[in-house]
Amino acid sequence: MKSSILLIILFTCNSCYLIAQDTFRLAPPLLKYNAVFFVDENEVEIKFAESQTAVHYSLNNEEPTMQDPIYTKPIKIKDNFTTLKAKAFGNKFYSSETVGVTFIKDGKPIPSIEQTIPSPKYPGSGNNTLADNKGGIDQLSSNTWMGYNCDTVSISLNFGKQQKVNKVLLDFLQNESSWIFLPENILVNWFDKKTNSFQFFGSEKILSDNETTGSHCNHRVIETKNKIKTDKILINIIVQKNIPSWHPAKGEHAWMFIDEIKVY
């Protein structure tokens, strides 16, 4: 009997001690790649140097579980719009949040782009910034971003020859704590050689009703039902003129950051 009680006390104390310690969540793993944009193939590394943990990942846009593969070596990406999601797991910890990135393959060649001159603070990296397959980096200090705080940004894409197209992709930065918002509106027109005038291709209005945390890349795709044939596309991006009321800088003019355009 005495030994039973001793055993119980021992177990109770031991387990109480262990319960008393905090349980922590793992931080999300790091996804490392040169750019989300690629021509033929891309490679991504996952970094998470914490012992007794494993990073599981998926490539089907599903939330990674412990049944998904464990990351061991760099992953090759070949298909357009492949989304990699990764999550760290460990017995001692709550699993991490999921991190993800979508890789975007090059589209039609765009030999010439003209755009509104960006802010001198965020000039990008030259005339070809929006078609150089560099970027998708969620840090505003990256020189892949062109930053604007004017009302409207016009971008003219010249293909040099007639191309059949039905999709235009634009990649933006969303970092509201730094006053960088998605635009209010994106308007795309295509040049119709027959009528010698621009025709409506598509548009998207974006609401910024809810705050997002951190800094993210956010690509938007404007699509037509049928492919059109054109050698020129004109894009007008309407920057948010009034930062929404939920933001500490409400009423101020927002910034818009763009780093890449693809046409399919």
């Binding site: 031991n14 262990l18 922590f24 001692k92």
Partner: peptide, 9 residues
């Protein structure tokens, strides 16, 4: 059971 699952950090 908890103690076994949650090792000391």
């Amino acid at each position: 059971l908890y103690a076994r699952q949650k090792e000391e950090i």
